[in-house]
Design a protein around this nucleic acid. Structure first.
Lengths: 125, 125
DNA sequence: GTAAGCGCTTACCTTTGGGTAACTACTCAC
DNA sequence: GTGAGTAGTTACCCAAAGGTAAGCGCTTAC
C-alpha cells in the first residue's frame, strides 16, 4: 500500500537505502578489473594465462592479487586438476552468477556509451 | 536467426564484446564515489554541502574533483541561480538517467550482498 | 642440457586516490 | 566588525593501486 497523505519527505528513506546499497556493492567490486574478471569467468572457466590474454593489459601481479581477493569473497574458486603438469582452472561460483543482471546492464550501458563518445569525438574534430 | 551448425567457438565474439563493454563502462565510472554521486543527484538535485552530508565520508576536495569530472563527462550540470547569495545546484542530466537500470541492479545486488555478509559473519563467530 | 611454457612471486617504482587542515571570497545576521 | 554559512581551493601528506622486469620451480619438447 502506498501512503496517500502528503509526504513532506517523499521516500527519503528509500533513497538513502539505495545509496547505501550501491556503496556496499562498490566496496567489494572496487577496482579496475574485478567486474570484468568475474564476467570473463562466468562466461567460461579459464586458466591463469588465458585470463591474462583475454583481459589484455592486466599484469600477472595484479591478476594474481585480484584472483585471491575474489576467491576470498567467494566469487570464484581455484581448482587444481592432477594432470601432468597440473592444470589450474579458475571458475565462477554460483555467487558470481548473482551479478548476472548487474553485468548485463553494465555491458549494455557500456556499449551505448561507447557509441555516444564516438559521436561526440566526431563533432569535436 | 541462430546458427545451427556446431559452433567450434560458441559465441566467442559476443563474450569478448560484453567484456569490452564492461571495461569501457568501468573506465568512466571508476572510483569509489562516481556511481553513488550520480545516484544521489538522480534522486534529487542538491547543493554542495547537501551532497557532502549525504555521502558521509567524502571530503570537500574529492567531492569538488568528482563533480568536475562528472560535469565534463556530461553526467551532471552545475546551475548557478542568482539569488542572494547565489545558489549553486548540481543536477543530474538525462545522460545520468541512462544509468538507471545499472544503478537499480547494483542497488538490489548490494542489498542482498549485505545480507549474505551478515550471515557469514554470524557463522564465523 | 637447453629452451619454452605454466603459474605465479618478488622487488622496485610511479601514479592516483584520497584525507586533513588551513584559507579565500562572498554574504548575511547580529 | 565579528561570527557563521556557502562553495570551494590550496598545500601537504600518506597509502593503495597498479605497472615493469626479473626470477623461480616445475615439466615437457627438442
Amino acid at each position: 500500500m502506498k501512503v496517500i497523505k502528503n509526504e513532506p519527505l517523499p521516500n527519503k528513506v528509500e533513497c538513502a537505502n539505495s545509496l547505501k546499497n550501491v556503496l556496499d556493492a562498490l566496496y567489494v567490486l572496487n577496482g579496475k578489473w574485478k567486474l570484468a574478471l568475474i564476467l570473463s569467468l562466468v562466461q567460461s572457466s579459464k586458466r591463469f594465462n588465458e585470463i591474462q590474454q583475454e583481459l589484455s593489459g592486466i599484469s600477472a601481479k595484479v591478476l594474481a592479487k585480484e584472483l585471491k581477493d575474489l576467491e576470498l569473497n567467494d566469487f570464484i574458486s581455484r581448482k587444481v586438476y592432477p594432470t601432468t603438469p597440473v592444470s589450474i582452472i579458475y571458475e565462477a561460483t554460483g555467487y558470481s552468477r548473482t551479478l548476472k543482471n548487474v553485468l548485463g546492464e553494465l555491458s549494455a550501458w557500456g556499449e551505448q556509451h561507447r557509441e555516444k563518445v564516438k559521436l561526440s569525438m566526431r563533432k569535436q574534430s
